[in-house]
């Protein structure tokens, strides 16, 4: 399963947070350290991790999120929003031209595997 390790750790993090009525800065820092490790273990780019953690830290302290949530839920929301941002923010679709055909060019490297026509297919 993809993301397994990361997912497990982030979920442990949100479980810790969910019930919290108060979160001190040192609570937050402790927890963020774990998140940071989890991201690095998942092979996320180091700079990306750093910025992600800083953003969560700053936003969680300057919390101006939705009023109806508890502090724990607010932090989870911040984490989720930041994660969505990292993954690209909004959905990115293909821009089809109004004057067809839309030309899509697929590029990339190629494996060293020999071509074999007995490969598995549907």
């Amino acid at each position: 399963m993809a993301f397994e390790g990361l997912s497990e750790k982030l979920q442990a993090f949100t479980r810790k947070l969910r019930g919290k009525a108060r979160i001190t800065e040192s609570d937050l820092n402790d927890m963020l350290r774990e998140v940071k490790l989890a991201l690095l273990e998942a092979d996320v780019n180091y700079k990306v991790v750093k910025e992600f953690i800083n953003n969560i830290h700053d936003k969680a302290l300057g919390s101006d999120v939705l009023k109806s949530l508890t502090p724990g839920q607010q932090v989870i929301k911040i984490v989720k929003d930041e994660l969505v941002e990292l993954l690209g923010g909004t959905d990115s679709k293909i821009a089809f031209t109004p004057n067809p055909p839309t030309v899509i060019m697929l590029i990339g490297l190629q494996g060293s595997r020999k071509d074999n026509n007995s490969r598995k297919t549907c």
Partner: peptide
């Protein structure tokens, strides 16, 4: 597969280009 997720999480931020 059992990708750890690093590529999915870094690519947009590093390249500015989204996963479609």
């Amino acid at each position: 597969g059992d990708t750890r997720g690093g590529a999915a999480i870094s690519v947009k931020k590093v390249t500015g280009k989204p996963i479609k």
